[in-house]
Amino acid sequence: PWQGRSIASSKLRMLEFSAFLEQPQDPETFNKHLFVHIGQSNPSYSDPYLESVDVRQIYDKFPEKKGGLKELFDKGPHNAFFLVKFWADLSLNLQDDSSFFYGVSSQYESSENMVITSSTKVCSFGKQVVEKVETEYARFENGRYMFRIHRSPLCEYMINFIHKLKHLPEKYMMNSVLENFTILQVVTNRDTLETLLCIAYVFEVSTSEHGAQHHIYRLVKD
């Protein structure tokens, strides 16, 4: 039931995704602030399908040359492509402190035993500025293969970006900057090079009192 209703292709399903800041309070406790978060969901057949977005509407927000979104989408499979609109929670006090930990955690599951590669490209005005590539091996748990990217440190570029964004006095200014800030995550089978998931992330700042929010869309080409 999750296919078409959550971030899942026929080969890989995203279970959880978060970018966070841990701030120590004292030697034994810390505060965890979630900038963005996709929690576990268990859609059923009675749930509606995700809305769709024509991938051509966002081509220019992501790398367009070799290995860009167009080439990836044309290669397929199309059921692996998603757009996530995040409303990021920036309602925290940031200080420069080396004891703070900025991290990203994500989890995936598959019915297949494989090695996955996750490429995360941060883009400014559609051009890649930094890329992180991670390789994960499967762990067999409860009848399925689990992949965990646990507490991957956020890069310096992203930490500086968050700090600069926080220093802007008005939310509309932050949103204006975020209009040209995107992230493209491509999860690939390391051995076959098949695209397992391709997720395009775009952002606004949350105005909610309930923290980070998101909408998920299927990317299509009608």
Binding site: V53, R56, Q57, E64, K85, W87, V202, E204, Q213, H215
Partner: peptide
């Protein structure tokens, strides 16, 4: 690209794209 420099607000996107969920 034909859509280059076009503000996101002027693109063909679902209405929900601009509606922040109010979930707890």
């Amino acid at each position: 690209s034909a859509v280059e420099q076009v503000p996101m607000r002027k693109r063909l996107l679902p209405a929900s794209f601009w509606e922040e969920p109010k979930l707890t």
